[in-house]
Design a protein around this nucleic acid. Structure first.
Lengths: 112, 112
DNA sequence: GCTTGACCCCTAGGGACTCTAGGGGTAGCA
DNA sequence: TGCTACCCCTAGAGTCCCTAGGGGTCAAGC
């Protein structure tokens, strides 16, 4: 899946992933890939700037750690980030059901 | 709903709307507003360039009509457009269920 | 010892898309 | 006459993501 289609929804995804526990950028990519069976496989050049953006916006904080001689920047949610995650989840639900209404597919995708 | 969040999905919406019968730009806006109870209310500056883009891409064709002294550019699907509509519908379904999986909301929003 | 691949961080530049903010016009009604 | 609904359009800006590079460490294989 091309991430173009994610436009405007990447923040939601990142907040959700980090909501489940602090993660560094590379781990976020892996977790996204894992949870979607590879359907969402974002390049680093997408993730890192996005994380920086969310930190600038005050939704994430970061801490540098040293693990096995490798430096990692670990991100976690701020309280504002927690709030934003809830808010964006709501927005997503509204958005998806609205589009679904227009598309008019029979009920919701029975993805078994 | 801000259309920012629509990024990448506007084409789907337009194709779907026109799929139900030829429409001019203004009518597309109204139909989108009607079908979503005002949730999707796009400015003309979004719709017209998008329709032109889809026409350039060969997915729509247009014809000028004169109705009550007002000129209208009426758009309808080409065969490529019909195919694209089906394709984009599929893409949307895949996208939405994938994001839904990450978001992990309880089942699908029971919008009755 | 060297290479390769996994792990880990980053930025610059470009392209695609939508919005804002204007431009134009006709018809009908107060 | 002025306002509103109807109807079309473009330029410029902003946002977001991608491509394509740049760093670096560590472990395993040759």
């Amino acid at each position: 899946m091309r991430a173009d289609v994610l436009k405007g929804h990447l923040d939601l995804l990142l907040l959700i992933i980090v909501e489940d526990g602090a993660k560094h950028g590379y781990a976020v990519i892996e977790e996204l890939r894992r949870r979607t069976d590879g359907a969402i496989d974002l390049p680093e050049g997408t993730i890192y700037p996005a994380l920086h953006r969310l930190e600038c916006a005050g939704l994430l904080t970061s801490e540098w750690h040293e693990v096995n001689g490798r430096r990692r920047r670990s991100y976690s949610l701020t309280s504002g980030g927690r709030h934003a995650a809830r808010e964006k989840r709501r927005e997503w639900t509204a958005f998806a059901s609205t589009v679904q209404r227009v598309v008019g597919a029979p009920a919701w995708p029975t993805m078994a």
